[in-house]
């Protein structure tokens, strides 16, 4: 797995600028019609190491921003995933149940966790943009 190359490229250019970020390392991307996709950042997957289980929320659940909605277990540790936004879960990435390592390889793409119908788009303004998130990671 070419994770080394990835690690060396933690800079603004590889953090997708169409996403917003929580300080707890989740990303959210607006798709269409008030639906957003949520996952964990490349920085987060790299810190966790090989991911072996992902527990996802239930479709239909109503959640609030900063709720613990998913769990990631890596060989190293268990980690809670917090929703960066409020709303209703409309879809989950069931592929992760059988192939959790997808989060390691493509965290911003096939490694997404769930899709959520946003309750309040104003919440997005409180999240970090790519540049601010890059700074946040460096400061850790």
């Amino acid at each position: 797995m070419p994770q080394r190359a990835k690690r060396e490229e933690h800079n603004v250019s590889t953090i997708p600028d169409n996403c917003k970020f929580a300080t707890s390392h989740e990303w959210v991307r607006i798709d269409e019609d008030g639906i957003a996709t949520v996952g964990i950042s490349d920085h987060a997957q790299d810190a966790l190491g090989d991911i072996v289980f992902v527990d996802l929320p239930e479709v239909g659940a109503t959640i609030h921003a900063k709720d613990e909605v998913a769990v990631v277990e890596s060989v190293k540790a268990a980690s809670d995933v917090y929703s960066p936004v409020s709303g209703e879960i409309v879809e989950i990435n069931e592929e992760l149940l059988d192939a959790p390592e997808t989060v390691n390889s493509v965290p911003y793409d096939g490694g997404w966790f769930f899709k959520i119908r946003l309750e309040d788009t104003a919440e997005l303004d409180e999240l970090l943009d790519a540049e601010a998130y890059a700074e946040h990671c460096e400061g850790e």
Binding site: M1, Q3, R4, G49, D50, V52, V75, N104
Partner: peptide, 8 residues
């Protein structure tokens, strides 16, 4: 601790 992937 690893050179990429601990599982590999």
């Amino acid at each position: 601790i690893n050179y990429g992937s601990q599982i590999e």
